[in-house]
Design a protein around this nucleic acid. Structure first.
Length: 109
DNA sequence: ATCGTGACGAACG
DNA sequence: CCGTTCGCCACGA
C-alpha cells in the first residue's frame, strides 16, 4: 500500500461533511463544527478548511451557513461577507445589527 | 521534524 | 464596544 495510508477521512473532508449537515435556514459556528468533529478547539482549523474549499465543491458545501461566534461573519475582505449574508438571507436567516440571530437560527441554540 | 499561516475564540485592558 | 494577545488545530513547504 502507499507509504502513507490515512486511517480515515482527512480533516477537510470531515469538515465539509459536517457543514453539509447544517439544515437550510440555520447556521453553525466554526467552534460548533469543530466540536462535532471531536476537536472542540479546532475552530481555526475549520475556518482553514473552508478557506481551502475549492470552487468546484462550493456548490455542494453550504459554507455560508458557518459563521463566527456571536453570529458574526468572519470574512472581511472582498465580496465574501456580502455574498455569505445574501445567501443566508435567501434562506430566511435573520440578521440583527449585522449579525445572524444565532438564538433563532443556531443549530445548537 | 520545525516553521509559518489562517473564514477561530476567549481573555484582557 | 473596540483593539490586542494568547492558545489551539491542521497542513504545506
Amino acid at each position: 500500500m502507499s507509504s502513507r495510508m490515512p486511517k480515515g477521512p482527512r480533516f477537510f473532508a470531515r469538515v465539509y461533511e459536517a457543514v453539509r449537515r447544517i439544515p437550510r435556514g440555520h447556521v453553525a459556528t466554526y467552534g460548533q463544527v469543530a466540536r462535532w468533529l471531536g476537536v472542540p478547539r479546532g475552530a481555526r482549523a475549520v475556518g482553514w478548511a473552508l478557506r481551502a474549499l475549492r470552487p468546484e465543491l462550493e456548490a455542494s458545501v453550504p459554507w455560508h451557513r458557518v459563521v463566527a461566534c456571536g453570529g458574526r461573519i468572519s470574512l472581511r475582505e472582498g465580496a465574501g461577507p456580502q455574498i455569505q449574508a445574501r445567501r443566508l438571507r435567501s434562506e430566511g436567516v435573520r440578521f440583527v445589527d449585522g449579525r445572524v440571530d444565532v438564538t433563532r437560527h443556531g443549530v445548537s441554540a
